[in-house]
Simulated assay, not measured.
Amino acid sequence: MASMTVIGTGNMGSAIASVAAKGGASIQIVARDIAKAQQLAAQVGGTADEFGDALTGDIVVLALPYPALEDVVKTYGAALAGKVVVDVINPVDFATFDGLTVPSDSSAAAQLQVALPGAKVVKAFNTNFAATLFSGEVGGVPTTVVVAGDDDIAKAQLTEIISAGGVVVADAGGLKRARELEAVGFLQMVLAVREQVAWTGGFAVRA
Rank of each mutant, 00 (worst) to 15 (best):
S3Y: 07
M4D: 03
G8R: 05
A15L: 02
I16P: 01
S18F: 08
S18V: 08
A20G: 07
A20Y: 05
A25D: 05
A25S: 10
V30Y: 03
R32H: 11
A35F: 02
A37R: 04
A41Y: 03
Q43K: 15
Q43V: 15
V44C: 09
G46V: 02
T47V: 12
D49N: 11
T56M: 07
T56I: 13
G57E: 04
V60Y: 02
A63T: 09
L64I: 15
Y66D: 06
Y66I: 12
E70F: 15
V73F: 08
G77L: 02
G77F: 10
A79C: 10
A81R: 08
K83I: 14
K83M: 11
V84Y: 00
V85F: 02
D87A: 07
V88Q: 04
I89Q: 02
I89C: 04
D93P: 07
A95G: 12
F97V: 13
F97H: 14
F97A: 09
D98K: 13
V102T: 15
Q111F: 10
L112D: 03
Q113L: 07
A119N: 09
K120H: 13
K120C: 07
V121S: 01
K123V: 04
F125Y: 09
N128C: 15
F134G: 09
S135H: 13
E137N: 15
E137H: 15
G140A: 03
V141E: 07
V141N: 07
T143G: 03
V145N: 00
V147K: 00
V147I: 13
V147S: 02
Q157W: 12
T159K: 08
V167L: 06
V167K: 05
V168G: 08
V169Y: 12
A170F: 03
D171M: 04
A172Y: 01
K176D: 06
R177Q: 14
E180A: 11
E182W: 00
A183N: 05
G185T: 02
L187G: 02
V190R: 06
R194I: 10
E195R: 15
V197W: 05
A198D: 08
A198E: 10
W199I: 14
G202I: 08
A207Y: 15
